Simulated assay, not measured.
Amino acid sequence: MVQYARTHLDASFAALSDATRRGVLEQLGRADASITELAEKFHMTLTGMKKHVGVLEQAGFVTTEKVGRVRTCKLGLRELEAEAAWIERYRQLWDARFNELDKVVEELKRMEQADGRTKT
């Protein structure tokens, strides 16, 4: 189970790591589009766009359907719950660490102010 989750997260974050692929997801969130339309919108070759769509499809973010010579892309059914949960765990960890750091900084400021008063 853990290995599957890691592989799943790796595919998701790899797919989302590219600005073009994120743009494709945004575009498909507005309307389905053919690979040709996406390639034109992003000023890419068909081959380049097919590769991007393939990565998104492998991660489950996009589905494609070929009718005749046209391959239409639409958003997949996959949600980002696992990815959001992973990010949230680390957000909480870093929040706790920064809160502790704030406490240390405040204590150092108090000590500095106390030392300043005794020297004057």
Rank of each mutant, 00 (worst) to 15 (best):
V2Q: 05
V2K: 06
Q3G: 02
Y4Q: 11
A5W: 08
A5T: 12
A5N: 10
R6N: 12
R6M: 14
T7I: 10
T7N: 09
H8E: 15
L9D: 04
D10H: 06
A11G: 00
S12R: 02
S12I: 15
A14E: 09
A14P: 00
L16W: 05
D18I: 10
A19C: 03
L25P: 07
L28V: 13
G29P: 03
R30G: 13
R30E: 15
A31M: 02
D32P: 08
A33H: 03
S34Q: 03
S34I: 06
A39P: 02
A39W: 05
F42I: 14
H43F: 12
T45Q: 11
T45A: 15
M49W: 05
M49F: 10
K50V: 07
K51I: 05
V53W: 05
G54H: 06
V55W: 05
L56W: 06
L56A: 07
E57S: 15
E57R: 14
G60H: 01
F61R: 07
V62P: 01
T63C: 03
T64D: 11
T64N: 10
T64W: 05
E65T: 09
E65W: 00
K66C: 06
V67Q: 10
G68K: 12
R69T: 14
V70Y: 02
V70K: 04
C73R: 01
C73H: 00
K74R: 15
L75W: 07
L77M: 11
L80N: 02
L80Q: 05
A82N: 00
A85N: 10
A85S: 12
W86D: 09
W86H: 13
I87Q: 01
E88G: 05
R89M: 07
R89L: 04
Y90P: 02
R91C: 13
R91G: 07
R91N: 11
L93H: 11
L93C: 01
L93F: 12
W94F: 15
D95C: 05
A96T: 09
R97H: 08
N99Q: 08
L101R: 06
K103D: 11
V104H: 10
V104K: 13
V104N: 04
V105H: 03
E106V: 14
E106T: 12
E106D: 14
E107Q: 14
E107G: 01
L108I: 09
L108G: 04
M111V: 15
E112R: 09
Q113K: 13
A114D: 14
A114K: 14
A114T: 13
G116I: 03
R117M: 09
R117Q: 13
